[in-house]
Design a protein around this nucleic acid. Structure first.
Length: 212
DNA sequence: AAAACGGACAACCGCAAGCCT
DNA sequence: GAGGCTTGCGGTTGTCCGTTT
């Protein structure tokens, strides 16, 4: 049985708040082992109105274990998706329906493409984003095997890279501007001597020159 | 070798829309 | 039509892991 489920059963039995030592013990690890992160062991009680359940449901959060993936895949293969809350309950996974849905759509679903975006995919995303804006699911629907999460992550990464290179370019321009102004001024003659030996790109200018 | 950093991506959260009773 | 529930979407955060210092 999956480690996570064993852990949950243990906690349900003792009705105690899980602590790191308990989890480490249940996981069969020594206390010196890599720490179990808070999100892995965080469990949330969710009230249920389902009479067949009759008690609160423990919901597991954090990264999915391979065993959980197997359970979800097997369940969906046999029963299909339908109502995700029922999938979560009937599969025996101690997860929310939302979490199951996300895991299936973004990771387990057949045909999911992994790895870097190809040039064609990149161009498609850029083009479609121009037309549609942040409509990630619409954009993803034009890219077979890619999820909206993939597209969103790609775009955020792309934007960050653009901003970074833009900032670098601006910094260089600004530094060169300052350098030229100083050279033109009377002060420049003295400073030219001082600056000799420093790179022209402005990134290596002495601090007092940049900040003046 | 260890700590710090940064990139990639997985997962959660809140909200809105749609559906059902 | 109102209210509750489920699903889907987009924004944000967390975690892992490779690289750099």
């Amino acid at each position: 049985m999956a480690v996570s489920v064993v852990m949950l059963d243990h906690i349900a039995d003792t009705n105690a708040k899980p602590d790191y030592q308990t989890c480490l013990a249940v996981k069969g690890k020594q206390s010196t082992a890599a720490p179990v992160t808070e999100s892995v062991i965080l469990l949330k009680k969710r009230p249920s109105k389902d009479e067949s359940v009759g008690h609160e449901i423990m919901v597991r959060k954090g990264p999915w274990e391979p065993e959980e993936d197997s359970i979800l895949s097997a369940y969906v293969k046999e029963h299909g998706t339908g109502c995700w809350r029922k999938v979560a309950e009937r599969s025996g996974l101690h997860r929310s329906g939302k979490s199951c849905r996300l895991r299936w759509i973004n990771y387990l679903r057949p045909g999911i493409k992994r790895g870097n975006f190809t040039d064609v995919e990149e161009m498609t995303v850029i083009k479609l984003h121009n037309e549609l804006g942040n409509r990630w699911s619409k954009i993803a629907s034009q890219l077979p095997g890619r999820t909206d999460n993939d597209v969103k992550n790609f775009w955020n990464q792309f934007v960050r890279k653009q901003e970074k290179s833009k900032k670098k370019q601006l910094a260089c321009l600004e530094a060169n501007k300052i350098k030229n102004q100083l050279i033109k001024s009377n002060l420049g003659e003295k400073l030219q001597v001082e600056m000799a030996g420093f790179a022209v790109d402005g990134m290596n200018l002495p601090h007092r020159i940049i900040s003046s």
